[in-house]
Each structure stands twice: as structure tokens, then as C-alpha cells.
Design a protein around this nucleic acid. Structure first.
Lengths: 217, 217, 217, 217
DNA sequence: AATGAATGAGGATTCATTCAT
DNA sequence: TATGAATGAATCCTCATTCAT
């Protein structure tokens, strides 16, 4: 039911009105793609779970792959973009000078944590299928390079000026930061979702780890 | 050709003499599974690339899944175990008291770096297929808990005694360390293999990041 | 074309509306199963003879065996039940006291003779496949024990009372009677269908043989 | 182990020395053919049960069908011929004039009863496979017409002369007799082998049934 | 004589996609 | 718009048979 969010966002994003059947199809597809992978999922199974005739899927999506793309493509955007763009960082940036890395990291991680928490199956699909569908990789890169990278560099420079970050190349800072955050989210929600996590504490440690790691001694 | 290593290790490990055809099959399977994923790979394609009749595959592996397992299962062991076990850490441990985290990390990362570099396709397959085959997850957990975890905790305790690690729960130390190392390897070899990496420098930064991140200020 | 009967009976019996293609499939399957046996018949051959795509078979029958069962199962019922049940014996029974075995045998044999004559391929399949499919044997036994046996015993008792049957155990009477009738039908339609039979005469002799054989002198 | 008999008879009959492996193959083939039918039996399964390499089968028998024929063909002869030929009837015939049908039937049934009892799997295979292999039917007919039929007619004539048989065409006498005997054997050993048969009694009733049935009143 | 690895044609079954209703 | 029967290519797998050892 958490995907409901996503489905409605989908509607807003694409301005397409999803018919109820179409929503059922996407819902079912997300579930099953996440469970067994795109290639191992049959359209008949999707139709069955969606409570829809098999032909109906192909009325809305020319091919099975179309269905995948229509799910993953907006998901990529919604997952990647906010890493260092969009409103939520704005707030931080608007305070003219960024002198503290901590609130920024806190904001960043918490926000992505919530998104992932509400969209685990979507994240699974993204991770799995980006490996095999170049067009998804392309889209990821395009979005990342145009929306995230410039903003990120700007932030790093400011933080370096404020002595929050040591003498590390910007690309490496980016890599280490993203790796640690994404690593946390994947460990938390995909690799070990059943471990008794104390999320707040874990997030706090993660922030400190990144802060200290980037600052140097 | 890099998998040649692995194939020969396979032979040693299982004491099974691989017939030439069998080696060709494994070689081809690794390549194609890595390229398109297990589910999207057909046995006829494997046979073709291996230069072998399709039936020959099934003389050696009862099912297509058997073939997958026979490839991934030893790969998991060979990838996971050395993280904190086996001879290569021994050398570090044998110096009685571990007072420096740096050489340990250096050793650890370099060693896994080499392994991954020589076995990229294998790593891809592992990452992809562990998601869908519970038996592989089981094996991973078994190996990790029995071989890696105890050793790791011991090391962390020693390092904490030597004031190399701050006040962070052992599990979190493990998570942050592994996440950063694996994140580096995946970024380096899977996500952006074509980026002009300066590997030595990048490894050095990664070590410092982990060291400072764990130490606190 | 004789099976047309059977196919329509199938429809009535199961209340399932057979699509035209489905009828063609059953028709073709009956023919080929009878010719070469279930195991030696390929679904592609059935599809070809039915003028249908191979996939169509599996849309209607989950497996090849399902197809067999859906053919043989009702055939068993329709062949076995009327031996001593159903309306056609009713007529004989309704004449209150059965004092003559001859009209009963006459009725019985003629009726089964007609059925077999119209369903030779079906009989062949039944005979062949019951040997290898326990579920068919079970069904046969269930139907026989519940529907035929009680009625038969009742008849034998009445006939014994009327001095039509000698001092022979009921089970043996049953065995000898059925064996002779079925033996006639199999010889007539399966073993030597091309022999120039004078059916009426042959039936007459068979009736006399059973009557005298059971009566003793 | 009962087939051991048959295997040795095979050796005598064909004057071929069966190697031990060959005997194992035949033994295994008889068992599995009887269990699941010729078409559903794989040569690899035969090889496995025989404890022999798959290639070995084809060293002795050009094709799988050859193996079948080499089993069924002598079986047919050994089952059919003695019905009214061979030594065992000789003894009866040699007493110049046959005036009693009973000892003849007794001898006949008992003899075939023993043979079938010792060769149930063989009988199953014969019954199943004659339906699908015209060459086996041919052989059956050839043997029957040349060896059994003439002798049988002679016997029937004698018995008719002695008033043991009523006014029934010889062919019909033959059909009714064989049908009853074979029907008994099949019921006894194939259809209901687990029923608690009292064989002697059952044979006795069967003889009386035939005798009375043929005699008329 | 015996082996068993190798073959490739053919087997049952699944699947994405189409189309008449 | 929605259906679901129909398709036939493709899938995994089995099998009888061959052949070098």
C-alpha cells in the first residue's frame, strides 16, 4: 500500500490519468518485479494479481518492457534528484552560508530514508534492472549530472571553505558520501530488513562517520 | 579470460575434474549471466557461446539453476571469507598486538580490490542473483557469521583498546566499514568501470575516510 | 467422426462449453492416443491434426496428462456404469421378478456392443492407459464398486432363486460373465476388427455360452 | 527373479550366449517396460537399473525397439504356442480318442496359469505393446495360425464327435474358450493380483463354466 | 566388450503479444 | 475500454544413439 503514494505521484508527474485498472496493473507489477525480477515475471502473473485480463496490460503498455520503464523511470528521478537538489536542500542553502555539514547530512539522510522506507519494492527494482537496461542507466546519468552534481560541488566548496571537509577531491567526497548513505539504506531495507534496527541512532552514527571521515583530523 | 583463474580454483576447490567442455560451459555461463542476468539467459545461448551442444549442459548440470549455483556458490565463499579470515589477515594478526588500523584496512581493501578486479562478472552475478535465490543468501549468511563475524569483533575490540576506534557499537563499525569498502568496489568496477580512476589514490582516501570516520575527533 | 457423440456427451456431462478449438483438440487427441498410445503421442502432433497452435492445447489443459484424463475419465464412467446400473437395466428390473437370464444378457451385451462400436478408439485408450495411470484405476474401482457391484449381486441372487444360475460364488459369476462379454467386445473390435463377423449370431452364441456355463447341467 | 527362467529359456531358444551384462539389461528392461510401458521407459533408466553403461545397451541391441522385440518376440511364442501344441497336449492327444473335455481344459489352464504366474511382467509387456507394434501382431498371427489353429480344430472335431461340444462353430468355440481362459489369467494376475484368490477353486469353476457353456443343455 | 561424454532432434510447456468480440 | 482465446516462437530439458577411449 506504500506504493500508493508512488502511483499517485506517477499520475501527477506524467499528468496522465491512470484508470483504476492501470493503477492495479502498476501496483501488481511493482510487487512481482520486486519479488522475482523483471525477466522472471510473466505478464499473465501480473494480470492475475492485478485482477485484470492479460490483454488489458497491452492496451496500456505496448510491451512488457514499456511497463517496466514506466515504473522505473520516474522512480529513478524521484530517488536521485532530491539527493542534492529540489526544495528540501533549498531550505538549507537559503541560509546563505553553509557552515555546518551535520544538519545537511541529517536532512539528506532522513529525507532519503523516508522515501526508501515508503518505496522498498521500487528501490529493489531500480537496483536490479538498472544493471540490464542501458536506457535506465542513461536516464540516471543524465539526471544525476544535470541536477545533482553541480549543486553538490557548490556545497562541497562552501563546506571546504568552512573547514568542514578536508583535502579530498570533490568527486571522492561525493563517492564516499553517497556510498555511505546508499549503503546504509540498502543494508537497512534490502539486505537486512529484519534486523532490529534502532534507526535514529544508526542514522546519527552514520552522520558522524561521514562528518569525521570527510573532515580528517 | 580473467575467470580462468576462478575456473581453476573451482576445480581445486571441489576436487572435481572439469572436462574441457564443462569448463567452456562455465566460462560462457559466467559471461552471459553477467551480461543479461540469469533469468534472461537461455541455455541455448550458453551452449552456443560455449561451442557445445545444448544437451551437454544438462549432462553436467541437472538444471539451469544447478549451473548457476555451481558458479555462484563458490564465488560467495571466495569473496566473503577473506574479508576477515584466512591467511591474509593472519599476517596482520600475527604481529601480536594490533595498534594501527591503517595497515589492516590497506591489506583488506587491496586484497579484495584484486579479487574483484579479476572477477567482475562473478561479482555482478552474485549481486544480482542473491536477491532472488534464498539458498544463496543462506550460504552467504552462514559463511559470514561463522567465518568473518567472530574475527572481526576480535579485531574491533583490540583496535578500540588501542584507541583507534571511537565509541561506536561493533555492529555499526562493521556495517560502516564493509559498506564503504564494498561501495568503493562496486562503484569502481560495476557502476563506473570506465571512469579514469586513480586507484591507489582512491584507495588511500577510502582508508583515511574509514579511519577518521571510526576514530571520531 | 464416431467420437462426435462422445464429445457432445462430454459437453453435456461436464456442463462445460467446449470451444470449437477445444473440441478439435479432443477429437485429435482421441485419434492419436488410440493409434500410438499416450506416451508415444506428441502434443505437437495433436496440435497439427487438430489444426490448432500447440499453445492452444495448454490454454485448455494444464498438461498433456490433463488432456488424457479429461478424455479417459468420463469414458470410464460411461463404459463401466451401464454394465449393471442406469436406466437400461431398470427396464429389465422393473418387470418385478427376473426369471430369465437371457433377456438380461441380451440387453446387456447389445447395449455395450453399441457403445463400444461407437467408441472403439476410446476403448483402446482406456485399456492401454489404465495400466499406467493409477488415478484411472482408482476411478474405475470407485465407480464399479459403488454403482455396478451392488446391483449385480442383487440380480445374481434373484437369478439363483429362479434356478438360472448354479452353485457358483457371486464373485465368480461376475468374473466369468464380464470376462466373456468384455472378451467378446475386445476380440470383435480390437483384436480382430477386420474378421467378417456375423455379429448377431456371435452375440447369440455368447449369450448361450454364458447361460449354460452359469447354469450347469 | 521369476524372469530368470525366461532369460535362460531365451538363451536356449536363440542359442545365443547372453553375457552377464546382457542378461542384466534384459532383466531391467522387462521390469521397467512392465511398470511404465515401452514408450515411457528411457534407455538411461534401463542402464541404471541394469548397472550398466548406457552405451552397453546399444552394443547388444541396435535400437531400443530391438531390445523390445528381443524380449517380446520369444515371449509371444512361448505364451501362444502351448495353447494347443507342444508336448503338453501331446500327452492328451496320444490317448488316441479324446472323449472328455475336462482333463484337457484342466491341463491347458493349469499349464498357462503356471507360465503366466512366472512371467507376469512379460505378459503385461505383451498385452501393452502388441497394440502398437504391427510386427508383433504379425508374429502372433503367424504362430497362432500355423501352430495352434489346426490342432485346435482337430480337437474340437473329436470332442464334438464325443458329444462334449454343442452345435457351435469351431471359431466361436475357440474364441469363447480362449477368451475365458485368458480373461481369467488377466483378471487373476493383472487386473486384481491382490485379491485373495483361491486359485484351485477358481480354476475348477472356470473349467466347469467352459465345459457347460460349450456343451449346451 | 564396455564405457560414458557428447550430440542434436524433439519433447512438453511458457510466454509476450494480437485480435475479434 | 476491456476481454480472453489464440498464437507460435522460444524455453528448459530428455532422449536414443554415436564414438573415441
Amino acid at each position: 500500500m506504500e506504493q500508493q503514494n508512488f502511483i499517485h505521484e506517477l499520475m501527477d508527474a506524467t499528468d496522465q490519468k491512470l484508470t483504476p485498472k492501470q493503477a492495479q496493473i502498476i501496483q501488481a507489477a511493482i510487487e512481482i518485479f520486486a519479488e522475482k525480477g523483471y525477466a522472471a515475471t510473466s505478464t499473465s502473473e501480473i494480470a492475475k494479481r492485478a485482477g485484470v485480463a492479460e490483454g488489458t496490460i497491452f492496451r496500456h503498455y505496448k510491451t512488457k518492457k514499456d511497463l517496466l520503464i514506466s515504473i522505473v523511470s520516474p522512480a529513478i528521478t524521484r530517488f536521485v534528484v532530491p539527493f542534492f537538489a529540489e526544495k528540501f536542500v533549498q531550505d538549507v542553502f537559503d541560509q546563505d552560508e553553509i557552515e555546518e555539514i551535520e544538519p545537511l547530512l541529517k536532512n539528506l539522510i532522513s529525507n532519503r530514508y523516508q522515501f526508501v522506507k515508503n518505496n522498498v519494492p521500487l528501490l529493489r527494482i531500480m537496483l536490479q534492472e538498472m544493471a540490464f537496461h542501458p536506457e535506465l542507466q542513461e536516464q540516471y546519468k543524465r539526471v544525476f549530472v544535470s541536477k545533482v552534481l553541480p549543486r553538490f560541488k557548490q556545497v562541497v566548496d562552501q563546506l571546504r571553505g568552512a573547514r568542514q571537509i578536508g583535502d579530498i577531491p570533490t568527486e571522492t567526497v561525493l563517492r564516499l558520501t553517497m556510498t555511505t548513505i546508499i549503503g546504509f539504506l540498502i543494508t537497512r531495507f534490502i539486505v537486512m530488513p529484519d534486523y532490529p534496527w534502532d534507526d535514529e541512532t544508526e542514522i546519527e552514527y552514520t552522520i558522524q562517520f561521514i562528518r569525521n571521515g570527510l573532515k580528517g583530523i
